[in-house]
């Protein structure tokens, strides 16, 4: 088997530092490039965008890495397993049963809390079904996951066909991935939800390293596997709700940054991998948005840029054997 035993490995800290610098540079450029007119207006406006992107970057990166740890693979992401489609489905159901008028009138923070609760509940169910029946084979899990994703997407598409066009416009407005109109109240609630998830997670960081060794080994080493996986699933549900509520589904970003993080990070520990994934997500989002605004003058959308550049990077990594 081929390997790279002779390549000297950078320390995790050096990698994090480098990523942090690039991320900071991206943010600085984004804030200052091409400012016309009053700085007092532009800076807070752009800061709002950056804050949204930071939150989304954290949510997507962390949820993907944790999900992959819990399922013991590097291909499945919450997005591929249909978690964000599930969120879209829940929202669609709400509009379907309550009507857009009621939804628009309700406090956005309140509906967000309700939707998140529904997400946690659903993902618990999903997790129970998947892990009680298909845990013996990763292939089964992947197949089931992809299928579930299609199921949620199709159900949502079905309901969206059924509701009337005005309500559909209301929904579409909520799901269009865009950082141009951050919702202040939602931002605060999301930040709080993330903080809660972080508190729930911080203490478990080290047992997650063990979890990544697989169920049997983890149990053998005394980690309460079921409890930790449940905890991760709850965190993932909250984080996916946050990112989807803020900007809508961004399918490939999680897969991309998680695998990039595994590839560039010489350590497997979550203490190192999680920050690396977050920084990579920040770089992708802020850098992509910058390209979008300055180079393409809004003539395309963020997903196109991320899919294109990210996909190419990823394939290059695959070819060099850095992703497996």
């Amino acid at each position: 088997m081929r390997g790279w035993p002779d390549v000297p490995r950078a320390s995790p800290r050096a990698v994090l530092l480098a990523l942090g610098l690039v991320a900071a540079l991206c943010i600085a450029l984004f804030m200052t490039l091409g400012v016309q007119g009053s700085w007092a207006f532009v800076l807070p406006f752009r800061a709002g965008k950056v804050a949204t992107m930071l939150l989304v970057a954290c949510a997507i990166a962390v949820s993907t890495v944790l999900f992959q740890t819990a399922t013991g693979n590097r291909i499945l992401t919450p997005a591929i397993m249909g978690f964000d489609s599930l969120y879209v489905l829940i929202q669609t159901c709400l509009v379907f049963f309550m009507g857009s008028a009621a939804m628009a009138a309700a406090d956005r923070r309140l509906t967000f809390a309700g939707e998140t609760a529904a997400m946690v509940l659903f993902s618990a169910l999903l997790h129970w079904v998947l892990f009680s029946t298909a845990r013996r084979s990763l292939h089964m899990l992947v197949l089931a996951g992809v299928v579930l994703g299609v199921l949620f997407r199709s159900l949502a598409a079905f309901l969206q066909r059924v509701i009337d066009p005005n309500e559909f416009a209301f929904l579409q407005d909520r799901f269009f991935a865009s950082f141009n109109n951050p919702h202040g109240g939602l931002l605060m609630v999301s930040a709080l939800a993330m903080l809660g998830a972080a508190l729930l997670g911080l203490r478990a960081m080290r047992s997650w390293d063990v979890l990544a060794l697989g169920r049997e080994t983890a149990i053998g080493l005394g980690v309460a596997h079921r409890r930790e996986v449940t905890r991760i699933m709850a965190i993932v549900a909250v984080l996916v709700s946050v990112s989807t509520a803020l900007v809508g589904p961004v399918t490939f970003l999680g897969l991309l940054v998680a695998n990039l993080a595994y590839a560039v990070m010489p350590s497997f520990r979550h203490v190192h991998v999680l920050p690396a994934a977050i920084l990579l997500a920040v770089i992708s989002l802020v850098g992509g948005q910058m390209l979008l605004e300055r180079v393409f003058a809004f003539d395309t959308n963020l997903r196109v840029i991320i899919d294109f550049l990210g996909g190419l990077t990823f394939i290059a990594l695959l070819l060099r054997g850095r992703v497996r």
């Binding site: 291909i75 899919d307 294109f308 497996r324």
Partner: peptide, 26 residues
């Protein structure tokens, strides 16, 4: 791909599809 596992194959396909799709959308 030097080290090919079962799951890397569809991953590569999804990624390639995403890249081509982004060109189409663009």
């Amino acid at each position: 791909i030097p080290l090919r596992s079962v799951l890397v194959v569809p991953l590569m396909g999804l990624m390639l599809g995403a890249v081509i799709d982004s060109v189409t959308t663009f």
